[in-house]
Amino acid sequence: MKQFYKSKSLLRLSFLFVLLFSVITAVNSCKKDNDDEEFADHVVQFEVKTTTGGVIKAIVTQVGTVKTDIFDPVGTTWMSGEFFVNSSQAQLNLDAKADLPDADSELVINLWIDGEIVRTDKKKGAGPMVASIDYSFLEL
């Protein structure tokens, strides 16, 4: 009878140990899955410029799902103000249309992130030109 009691206690103790080990393992694995550390804030700025005589007709910017249209901005250069974007927003887009006067004219658009140009698109020629930049913070 005593032997039966000891084996039953050993079984209970083993079950308790396995249960405790499972709970500790689950808690530690959840602690490491902090997704907030994965995303960071970045300073972003859009830039559109043409050579002398070029006329910017339209600019479209998109940050995540928020789209902004700007028609007939004044001047040959346009820059958005600096703004913060969290990398969880994933997608940045910049499109610009300009009328250029001659074959040597240029339309240049730049995407600045954290003070550096990360993407540029340049169109050269006469007439209506369209330049486009797409950027994603997510690595595919």
Rank of each mutant, 00 (worst) to 15 (best):
V27E: 07
N86F: 02
F46H: 08
L10D: 12
H42G: 01
N28Y: 12
T76C: 00
D121Q: 06
T61V: 10
T120Q: 12
K6S: 13
E47P: 00
V27K: 14
I133C: 07
F71Q: 11
T25S: 15
D104A: 15
S136Y: 10
V118H: 09
F137S: 07
Q45C: 05
A98D: 06
A58D: 14
L10Y: 04
I24A: 15
G53S: 10
V55M: 08
G127K: 01
A131V: 09
R119K: 15
Q3I: 05
T120D: 02
D134T: 09
L19T: 13
V63I: 09
A131M: 08
G75Y: 06
D121Y: 01
Q91F: 07
V23Y: 10
L111S: 03
V48N: 13
A90C: 09
K97I: 04
I113Y: 04
I133S: 07
I117L: 03
Y135M: 04
V23T: 05
E37P: 01
V48L: 12
A126W: 02
V43N: 11
A26K: 10
K123W: 03
P73G: 07
S88H: 04
L107H: 06
A126R: 06
W78H: 11
E139G: 07
L138Q: 13
E47D: 12
L138G: 08
I109E: 02
D35P: 09
V66C: 02
D102H: 08
E116N: 10
S105D: 09
Q91H: 12
K2L: 09
N93R: 14
V48D: 13
G64M: 08
V74S: 15
W78P: 00
T76I: 07
A126Q: 12
D114Q: 03
S105A: 13
D41G: 08
S132C: 01
F84W: 04
S132W: 01
L140W: 06
L94H: 10
K122Q: 11
S136P: 00
V44T: 11
S29P: 00
K97V: 09
L13I: 00
L138N: 12
D99T: 14
W78C: 01
G54I: 08
P128I: 02
L16W: 02
S87P: 05
L100T: 06
D95R: 08
Q62I: 01
G53V: 03
Q3L: 10
S132N: 13
I109H: 01
D114A: 02
T51R: 04
V48Y: 14
V130R: 06
M1G: 13
F4G: 00
D121N: 14
P73R: 15
E47K: 01
G127M: 06
Q62K: 15
P101Q: 09
V63Q: 12
I56C: 13
V43W: 12
V55W: 10
V23I: 13
D69Y: 15
K6M: 11
A40N: 05
D33F: 11
D72R: 02
L100S: 08
